[in-house]
């Protein structure tokens, strides 16, 4: 038990610290693919450091809600990182929230961010909040459907148990898992504000979604938000790894497997970042009104996955 607590803490801290690294790696890959000279791997840390040190400018109208939001969002992401198995499956903290609660935590962070964006009362802020909620209301059910499909196979909505079942099953191809996997990728792209749904590096306000919401943030508040964005990407990647390629995560009580698990995690994350960069290079951002169709397709895939599970796998 105490070993579990240590592991739990270690893993969470690792996720928080390593998250900007994944963002840095993805940026590097993308720069290379696009024929630019890549920024150093540590660039995201430098940006965070710079932002933390800068003076914070707040709008006159900003209410305490606006100031509290970065902390709330960041804590939500840290907690989310605490219940997704990354290195080890032995997480004493995980029974307190299952995948549905995980979706709830992401939703809480998003609602706070959207409210904060509306707080100052600028045109871009409200526009960003509206678009973010639009993407969310389509992405969230699709994400839930993905989890439901997986939970039909694992008979549980507890992440460690899901990972346990998926990692230790006889080798078998589950078509429903394939469907769920593709749907999950589409949802993560939308939730993490990546191309083709949103462009994280855009400077054109009219096409922004996520960036439009945080336009009024600066200094340490902006740093916290940028960090939580990185952490969110990290948690989503870890979630995808845990559900669809769980091999290598150390089972309960097997400390010896930890170094291997760390290696596997680093390798998978590196591949994941590379794939993300490739896809972002190949695709263009789509028009906003295509986004519902994109997410509708994800939703459809997840539902089809569930139906196929009933037909072929039960």
């Amino acid at each position: 038990m105490s070993g579990g607590v240590v592991l739990q803490g270690l893993q969470t801290v690792l996720a928080v610290l390593a998250a900007p690294l994944l963002t840095g790696w993805t940026n590097q890959c993308r720069a290379r693919l696009q024929g630019r000279r890549p920024p150093p791997l540590w660039q995201s840390y430098r940006v965070l450091h710079k932002l933390f040190l800068k003076e914070t400018v707040l709008a006159k109208e900003a209410s305490p809600l606006f100031q509290a939001t970065p902390y709330v969002v960041f804590s939500c992401m840290v907690l989310a990182a605490g219940i997704v198995p990354m290195l080890a499956n032995d997480l004493p903290f995980s029974p307190v929230a299952d995948v549905i609660a995980l979706v709830g935590i992401f939703a809480l962070a998003r609602v706070f961010l959207a409210l904060a964006a509306m707080d100052v009362g600028t045109a871009f802020g409200t526009l960003g909040a509206r678009r973010e909620m639009l993407v969310a209301f389509l992405a969230e059910p699709a994400l839930l459907m993905v989890f439901f499909t997986v939970s039909l196979i694992s008979h549980s909505t507890q992440l460690p148990l899901m990972v346990h079942v998926l990692a230790h099953r006889k080798f078998a191809i589950y078509p429903s898992l394939a469907f769920a996997g593709v749907a999950f990728w589409m949802v993560s792209v939308a939730e993490n504000a990546r191309i083709p749904v949103d462009n994280p590096t855009t400077h054109l306000e009219l096409t922004m979604i996520h960036e439009a919401m945080i336009l009024e943030y600066s200094g340490r508040y902006l740093a916290l938000i940028e960090w939580s964005v990185a952490l969110k990407l990290f948690v989503y990647s870890a979630l995808g790894i845990a559900l669809f390629v769980p091999w290598g995560i150390a089972p309960v009580g097997d400390e010896a497997a930890l170094p291997l698990a760390l290696l596997a995690l680093v390798a998978k994350m590196a591949v994941g970042g590379l794939v993300l960069a490739v896809l972002e290079t190949l695709n263009a951002k789509m028009r906003l009104f295509r986004v519902p169709e994109f997410l509708g397709t994800a939703f459809l895939l997840a539902v089809l996955g569930m139906l196929i599970h009933f037909l072929l796998e039960s």
């Binding site: 933390f52 040190l53 707040l58 709008a59 900003a62 009362g121 009024e216």
Partner: peptide, 18 residues
């Protein structure tokens, strides 16, 4: 942690609005 490490002050100003 944030407040202990980074004691930079907060300045109020008009909304930036791009």
């Amino acid at each position: 942690l944030v407040r202990f490490r980074y004691t930079g002050r907060v300045r109020r100003s008009a909304a930036w609005q791009c």
